[in-house]
Amino acid sequence: MIFDKDSPRVRELRLTLYVIRKSKMAMVSICVLVFFFTIAILAPVLSPYDPTEVHPAEVFMPPSSKYPLGTDYLGRDNLSRILHGARYSMFASLLVVALTVLIGMPIGAVSGYLGGKVDETLMRITDVILSFPGITLALLLAYVMGRGIFSAALALSLTGWTSMARIVRGVVLSEKGKDYVIAARLIGKNDFQILFGEIMPNCMYPVIIQAVMMMGTVIISLAGLSFIGVGVQPPEPDWGVIIAEGRQYLLEYPWLSILPGILMITVVLAYNLVGDRLRDALDPRLRGELAAK
């Protein structure tokens, strides 16, 4: 496709971006996210020490010029650990959400489109999985596959796709009754072409919004799994692990746990704020109103 500056698609995208740009909160949030992704990517360069390097003589050091954020109970540099921890939070959550979309979207689409027994079966399966706490599945997977970030990510994807499937199913249900679907049948298209060629492109906005909104919860869940010991394994530095290790010394050395906690809240909040604004900006009715303001 040739890039056409005046095509309505591009114009629409520009309008969306314009609406997002107008919101200071969203822009700050995006900057925050960009900042954290940069940190995650550049962690090995930025870190003064290896995050797992132990300094037995210098445990529980307060922040100083040698250790900008102090050290933990094994004398590991806190700054380096937090920087490396960002990698798990930022990238593993992306992986989980991607898997969620990859599993949930086709299942929801097929379920909504075919209806009847298929729909019934698929939706009952999602119901069962929805009532299944992610943590239980994570524990099970950790037992089968061994503990680690991949077990945790997989467990969250295997439970998380249900909400995506439900949203997609709902949109497909409302789209499939429209005339353009009948029109597509009338030119002889088959079900596959109609569902993925005609209907799905009309269902993308809710998927995008849901994906962004999910990022926050996924980060929290991943950290939670690391915290209880089935996610990232010590000595690897994950924010959840750091918080878990620091909590035993919370009264004496509070900065160990509190700082990664604050960082996590910041990232999650940023995702949620961006998602909120994105939802407004992608809504064709709200968009015009917001742009005019």
Binding site: Y180, I182, A183, A184, L186, P201, N202
Partner: peptide, 15 residues
């Protein structure tokens, strides 16, 4: 066989 609908807005895929 072809069919034309009452509402051409809904019969064209908006995307």
């Amino acid at each position: 066989i072809s069919l034309i609908f009452q509402d051409p807005t809904a019969a064209l895929n908006p995307v």
